[in-house]
Amino acid sequence: MNISVLGCGRWGTFLAWYVHKVGHNVMLWGRENSRNYIGLKETRKNDYLPLPEDIVLCNSLEKAVSFAEMIIISISAQELRSFANQLSSINEIDGKTFILCMKGLESASGKRLSQVFGEEIGKKINLAVWVGPGHVQDFVNHIPNCMVIGSENVDITKKIVQEFSSDLIRFYYGQDLIGNEIGAATKNVMGIAAGMLDGFNYSSLKGSLMARGTREISRLVRAMGGNDITIYGLSHLGDYEATLFSEHSHNRKFGKAFVEGERFGKLAEGVSTVRALRELSKQYDVELPICSAIYEILFDDKNAKETLEDLFLRPVKFEF
């Protein structure tokens, strides 16, 4: 099958490498003037992996879309609306399957990425999300993991799983798009919180963060019309090891650097997500104490140590 991957950052390049590895013809698209694209064009590799010679690199969206039956998108979540708008003008888009491989929410509106994409495309397409735990650094060293494909059309879900399954990634069928998308996005906020705890040598509190974080997000998912149990699956709790503990996690490293007063130069999607959660908390009238605390630390200049201690160490209440 012909597959295009739109976005040639760390994750997009890995996805091109992976779907090629499982036997597909792959075209990898990047913006002509982006540092990632220029680097791949010149050296056929990035910091994580070499790009196989028969993966075609291109900078034409029209060419990438017309080439493929399935199109994987891996860009910054906050760029998705404008990018989808750009895609909507391409004539050959009808009937194709798009797979969103990013974890986030639209910062200003709190909307899920499938909603954002659907609003802008406005054409007859198939849409799915690919979420769950896993780092490029582990996968390229043949360390396997489990992930989730979710869609509102179970036949599309099954087809994607059939095409992409391997010994390296075992896929599960996602049955709850709301829960899977909210879970995947919000685990990045918990990752920032975990990094802050690490920065204060409060790593032992990450167990409390996991227990209370899952409860908090499950309440939000239920209020939004999803299945609260989804949060205890791979998209959220299942991704905690990779996000709260892994040396590779950008969000954890961002949180740690933030409280240590250091600059972290890479994308931490949880920063935008926590803005979106502020909006969702109001829309659905659901208290999100951990997310609110992280928002106040990042955007209201609240003292991080005092705020986290208040959150975890001082309330006296029944657990359930």
Rank of each mutant, 00 (worst) to 15 (best):
A257E: 05
D47Y: 14
V274M: 07
V116E: 05
Y284F: 15
V221Y: 06
N153A: 13
H236L: 09
R278K: 15
F98C: 03
L40G: 00
V259S: 06
V22N: 04
D228P: 15
D285P: 07
R275D: 09
S109L: 00
T43R: 15
L49D: 11
F264G: 12
E42H: 11
M147A: 15
I229G: 11
A304N: 01
I75Q: 02
S89N: 12
P133W: 04
S292V: 06
R81I: 08
G12T: 04
R215E: 14
R263P: 05
M102T: 09
L311W: 02
V131Q: 07
K123D: 10
S76V: 12
A304Q: 00
H24L: 04
Y48W: 13
G95W: 07
N227F: 10
M102Q: 08
S272Q: 14
C146F: 13
H250S: 08
H20W: 00
S235R: 02
I149M: 01
I72P: 03
A293V: 09
L313Y: 08
S292W: 03
L28A: 01
K96Q: 00
K253Y: 05
P144N: 10
M70A: 13
R112H: 05
Q162H: 13
L220M: 03
M224F: 09
L209H: 06
D228R: 14
H135P: 05
I55K: 02
T186N: 04
L15W: 07
N227M: 09
H135M: 06
H142Y: 12
E152K: 14
V148R: 06
L244D: 03
E247I: 03
L49S: 11
D300Q: 10
R81Q: 13
K123C: 11
K317H: 11
I290H: 02
C58Y: 11
I178V: 15
D301H: 14
L113M: 15
Y18K: 02
G179L: 08
W17G: 01
K266A: 08
G30E: 02
D285G: 11
A304P: 08
L87H: 07
K41N: 11
K305Q: 14
I169C: 06
L49A: 12
R212P: 03
G7C: 08
R275I: 14
F83I: 00
M1N: 13
E262S: 15
I3W: 06
K158W: 12
K111N: 13
Y18N: 02
E309R: 11
V22E: 01
Y172H: 10
S34P: 00
N2H: 12
F117T: 04
I71Q: 07
E42R: 14
V189H: 05
